[in-house]
Amino acid sequence: MLTQDRAVQDEPAVRRKCLIGLTVNGEPQEVAFFPEKTLLEVLREDLGLTGTKHGCELGECGACAVLLDGQPVLSCLVLGLECQGREVLTVEGLANGPELHPLQAALADLGGTQCGYCTPGILCVALALLRDNPAPTRAEIAEALSGNLCRCTGYHQILDAVQEAARRMAGGQP
């Protein structure tokens, strides 16, 4: 018999969820979930934040990227439990009320998003890049985004948009 079947059989019928506290998009949150849940599952299923997308769920696409304590990580490969006391930023945290973040606006303006599935992950990674390096070269943008697949745009428009956002954030007019 396969080991995974045995694991399920031996468990008690009623299982305890664990409770953690963390900060999501600046707001303190408490959330309860089973210990095997990933941050991606906790965000989407327990916190109702479905902006973060699930693609491969194996680290191979970048759709689920969020910032954890300010660093881009793949939420499909982080245990929710390991986020106790930490700060998470998802795509929902980017806009300021109705006003889009310059990165969001530039992606929309320059065709850097088509189906949009890769966009939340790309936004989070690009946000961290521009924080650490406000005027990145095209090669630096490409390197930072090398873990985010996009099946629609062909990438050029995404790189254009990040460059444009950097320019606007430095005070250039849209």
Binding site: G59, G62, A65, Q71, P72, V73, L74, L77, V78, V125, E143, A144, S146, G147
Partner: peptide, 9 residues
Amino acid sequence: ISTPPLRNM
């Protein structure tokens, strides 16, 4: 190795 977000982990 892998990609920038994976290298953060």
